[in-house]
Every structure is written in C-alpha cells, then in structure tokens.
Amino acid sequence: MKAPILEIRNLHARVGDNEILRGVDLVVYPGEVHAIMGPNGSGKSTLAAVLAGREDYEVTDGEVLFDGKNLLELDPEERAREGLFLAFQYPVEIPGVSTATFLKTALNELRKHRGLQPLDAMEFMNLMQQRAALVKIDPAFFTRSVNEGFSGGEKKRNEIFQLAMLEPRLAILDETDSGLDIDALRIVADGVNALRSPDRSFLVITHYQRLLNYIVPDVVHVLYRGRIIKSGTKDLALELEAKGYDWVKEFAEVTA
C-alpha cells in the first residue's frame, strides 16, 4: 500500500481559552474519499481551517503530516503549493479582482512550484473553458469579481471550479453541498467524481447523507466535541441519517 497523503495525530487546537480540537486522529491514503460528519459546532470547520493554515487557531498538541512533511510549519500558500485545497464553507467575496486574474496568478504560482512554465493566455483560457464545463459554470463568471454578488450555490460551484483548475492532491470540501439545489448538488458531485483519481484524496465535510449517495466515501467519521468518536463505512452515514447523533455521542462519553 502507498504511504498516506495525510496523517493527523492527536491534534489539539484552540482559540483563546476555547479548546476546539481535542485530539483528532485521522489517516487518509491517496485516492480515498473520507466523509466527516458531526453536529453543529463540533469542530469540523476548525479542523479544515487548521489544515489550510488559518492563523486564528493555535495548535497546542499533536502533528499533521502531509505527504510525509510537517504541514503545520508551512504557510498557507506553501500548503496550497504542496497540493492542499480547501473549498470554503463561506467563500470570500473579493471585489475588483476578477476570477480569471486570480486563478491565473494562483495556477502559475502552483506551476512554478512544480517546476512548470506558466501557461500563456491561450492555454489558460482553454483550460478555464474546459474546467468550467465540468461544473457547468458560465464563462461570463471569468471576468466577474471573485464571488462578488454570486448566489450561495454559485459560490459553492465556483469553489469546485477552482478545485478543478488547481488540481490538488488533497481537497477538503467544507459543506460544499449546503445551499445547493438538487440539480446543482448533482453537478457538483459529478464534478468531484470526475476529479477523483488514484492519487487525489478528498475530505468531505457534510451534514447530509444525500451527498454521499453521489460521492461515495471510503470511510465515514463522526467528529464530536473536537474528537473523532466513530468511524465506519458509508453505511454509518445511513445509520446517522436514520437515528441522529445521540447514540454515537455515547461513544464520546465512554472514551472521554
């Protein structure tokens, strides 16, 4: 078996006095899709943010290896260049910066890191067209400011479009399905499935089992109070859908 792409060991993180992650352990291998579920406020977005390098959180214990490297000592842009991608739960609006300019700068930065030449205007345009088709994004969006005035669903789709452009090795999707209508959910899921490959992994944070019908996970985890309290197959998601979280919370009490 290949080496893991991501290894999280006993990760603790806090904001001020508020300890949010309280010992997360998680190992993801290349090509795998892991789903992370869990009640509101359990720390899912915090985990995603800590992995992406947001500075608001202080890591107090534990380690994270990304492709064997110490992820926590890298700056956010270095993590991105190493192949980490976070689809934000709340994508940020950036007035005055066009999607095309932004993505061109980002992509060429990643290419430089990989020792590749920057794409010229034609090649870049072609790539954008092709990847936009994958998530059925109207090319009119290229010249619009990043996320500005986008509907909730458009913002989410734009995240997956960026994912398709930047071709990361590990993509973290933070509730990309929430706010999507039924058709858009399908489109996003098809897009993600098209991007699945033996050396690309996904961490899919979601509240809804429905997404997992489309993007079928290899493993499902339940995060509760800053810890993964249960892991299982895709059937765990079905069980949670049917029974709610109360019964798994008991595992937390046992292990706490």
Binding site: A52, R54, E77, F85, I94, A106, H113
Partner: peptide, 13 residues
C-alpha cells in the same frame, strides 16, 4: 479574510 482566501490558493502574501 480575503488575504487568507488568496493565500490558501497559493498566492504569496
């Protein structure tokens, strides 16, 4: 927030 968003896509500060 915008700075972090851009950096998380690989742009230097």
């Amino acid at each position: 927030e915008a700075m972090f968003y851009l950096r998380s896509r690989g742009l230097s500060p």
